[in-house]
Nucleic acid binder design. Structure first.
Length: 305
DNA sequence: CCTTAATCCTGGAAGC
DNA sequence: TGCTTCCAGGATTAAG
């Protein structure tokens, strides 16, 4: 669900609340969302005992820092042990004060949906404070590692540069070697990490580039424009606390505000803020795509403009 | 290579 | 109101 600005907002709000605290206990309601990177990182590590898996989830350890690459987070201990967190589509990390009604982390018994539902892992920080990993759709997951190098070797090193630090040269190199639609290339985390459907559409509108333009035809100058606009849009979205479309909230339970600044995402059929013509909607790389056919330069790919 | 569709799931919204 | 259908911020895989 969350893209770079939402994940960065979670990183900041979470770090402010857990830095330096010790994990008193770990609850694993759904062990199948937890993977071990030193066991290949693929399937659930069935051999490890529950006690061992809780240790891997930092039981007894102190929280050193929280880092991010693209849409993924990592909670690290001072000695380099850690947990990588990918929120997927519906995942969230939330700091809760236990003892309050509905905050016991157990699935609620009523028919009313509750934020305590789908809490797969909970870190008890003592003092009545817990961090919950919730993920109703379970497209996300947790990956434990003993050394930070494992995280980079098996996961983050395979991603492209982060959207906030990628250079025009790097982006141009990535785009020039693929014969795909520009939008499909920008969604590819191996090329640039952190963009999802919302921010790619906003980025392409801001740079007046057509989503179906052939990625390899993007010039160095256009790559420079893309990088500048990417930093600006992602930066502003972070300032606004991310985009809340449905249920995204940060670690403090706060919704984002950037959705009111969207120019194209979710506005199909509504007038373009630039020229007034209705924004068009198509599907590219399996994703709903909204763009202005007038303002964004014509496609050089697959027929229609 | 590149594209699409299916897949993993739940739940909110829209349609009838 | 109630039931059904569609759709969704992601990422991988298989099929064409």
């Amino acid at each position: 669900m969350p893209e770079l600005p939402e994940v960065e907002t979670v990183r900041r709000t979470l770090e402010a609340r857990v830095l330096g605290r010790r994990v008193a206990a770990v609850r694993m309601a759904r062990p199948d969302v937890v993977y071990e990177l030193d066991e290949g990182g693929r399937g659930p590590a069935r051999r490890a005992t529950t006690a061992k898996r809780k240790q891997a989830l930092l039981e007894g350890q102190r929280v050193g820092r929280i880092t991010r690459h693209g849409k993924q987070l990592a909670i690290l201990t001072p000695d380099g042990q850690g947990v990588c967190i990918h929120l997927g589509m519906s995942g969230s990390l939330c700091v809760v004060e236990t003892g309050k009604p509905g905050n016991d982390g157990k699935p609620n018994q009523t028919s009313q949906p509750s934020k305590a539902d789908h809490v797969h892992v909970a870190w008890d920080l003592g003092g009545g404070r817990e961090v919950w990993f919730r993920d109703p759709r379970r497209f996300g997951g947790l990956w434990t590692f003993n050394q930070e190098a494992q995280l980079h070797e098996t996961r983050w090193g395979r991603l492209g540069p982060d959207g906030l630090v990628i250079t025009p040269k790097q982006l141009h190199a990535g785009l020039s070697r693929t014969q795909r639609a520009l939008k499909a290339a920008l969604l590819d985390q191996h090329l640039v990490a952190g963009l999802g459907n919302i921010y790619v559409d906003e980025l392409l509108y801001a740079t007046k580039l057509h989503p179906r333009k052939l990625a390899s035809e993007i010039t160095k100058v256009e790559s420079g424009r893309l990088v500048r606009a990417m930093r600006r849009i992602l930066g502003r979205a972070i300032e606004a606390g991310g985009s809340t479309l449905r249920d995204y909230v940060d670690a403090a339970g706060q919704a984002g505000g950037f959705q009111t600044q969207h120019r194209v995402y979710g506005r199909g059929g509504e007038p373009c803020r630039g020229c007034g013509k209705p924004l068009g909607t198509t599907v590219i790389a399996g994703r709903t795509t909204t763009a202005c056919e007038g303002c964004q330069l014509g496609a050089t790919l697959t027929g229609e403009r």
